[in-house]
Simulated assay, not measured.
Amino acid sequence: MSRIPTPATIDEASETSRPILDTIQKQIGSVPNIFQLVSNSSTALTGLTSLQSALGKGKLPPATRERIALAMTEANGCDYCLSAHTFTGTKFAKLDGSEIAANRSGTSNDPKAAAESNSPGH
């Protein structure tokens, strides 16, 4: 149970947070807990979604971003984040199960991605 009151549904969120949560629901099919929690402040929710949108416009392709996220969440031991990035890696970055398993150990079945993860400075 959360120590911070968290809206269980979009309808329970503040009126100003609901449109943002609706958009998230439409984009990924659910509203992850982090967004439900942050929706207590529509300003913070706007900031979080704006940051994610800006980072999504970077030069790294979605598959590379998810490979990095999977390796980091495995290293951090965060089961919640691992579950979330397994979902987004599969759904949006089109990574298969064997690739996700390799990414969790810091490598890749893709020769180019594996070479980049093993290059000096990584």
Rank of each mutant, 00 (worst) to 15 (best):
Asn103Glu: 12
Ile4Leu: 05
Glu116Gly: 06
Leu48Cys: 03
Ser14Gln: 04
Asp22Gly: 06
Pro19Arg: 10
Arg67Trp: 10
Asn40Gln: 09
Pro120Ser: 03
Ala71Arg: 09
Gly97Asp: 15
Glu66Met: 02
Thr107Asp: 00
Val31Arg: 01
Ser14Tyr: 07
Ile28Pro: 02
Pro32Phe: 00
Thr6His: 03
Tyr80Leu: 01
Asp110Cys: 04
Ser30Val: 11
Asn103Val: 12
Arg67Pro: 04
Ile24His: 06
Asn109Glu: 14
Ser117Glu: 05
Gly29Pro: 06
Arg104Trp: 07
Val31Ile: 03
Leu21Glu: 03
Pro5His: 08
Asn40Met: 02
Thr46Pro: 02
Lys112Leu: 07
Gln25Val: 14
Ser39Pro: 02
Thr46Ala: 01
Leu37Met: 04
Ile4Lys: 11
Asp96Ser: 11
Gly106Glu: 13
Tyr80Asp: 01
Ser53Met: 08
Ser105Trp: 09
Val31Met: 00
Ala44Tyr: 13
Leu55Trp: 11
Asn118Trp: 09
Gly77Gln: 02
Lys26Leu: 05
Ala8Asn: 06
Leu95Lys: 12
Ile100Arg: 09
Thr43Lys: 11
Met1Arg: 09
Ala75His: 14
Thr64Cys: 02
Ser50Gly: 13
Ala102Phe: 10
Asp11Tyr: 07
Arg104Pro: 04
Ala8Arg: 05
Ser30Phe: 14
Ser42Val: 06
Pro32Asp: 02
Ser2Trp: 10
Thr9Met: 01
Ala115Glu: 10
Ile100Asp: 05
Pro5Val: 06
Ser50Val: 10
Ser108Cys: 02
Ala71His: 11
Glu12Cys: 02
Asp79Ser: 12
Ser117Gln: 09
Leu95Ile: 12
Asp22Glu: 09
Ser83Met: 11
Phe87Gln: 15
Asp11Ser: 08
Gln52Phe: 14
Arg67Ile: 07
Ser53Ala: 10
Arg67Phe: 08
Leu82Lys: 15
Thr43Ser: 08
Asp11Val: 08
Gly29Cys: 02
Val31Cys: 01
Pro32Ser: 03
Ser39Leu: 03
Glu74Ile: 08
Leu37Asp: 04
Asp11Leu: 03
Thr73Tyr: 06
Ala54Asp: 07
Asn76Val: 02
Gly121Gln: 05
Gln25Phe: 07
Gln25Asp: 14
Ala113Ser: 15
Ile4Thr: 15
Thr23Asn: 07
Ala93His: 09
Gly106Arg: 13
Lys94Leu: 10
Ser41Cys: 02
Gly77Asp: 00
Tyr80Glu: 01
Ala101Phe: 13
Ile100Met: 03
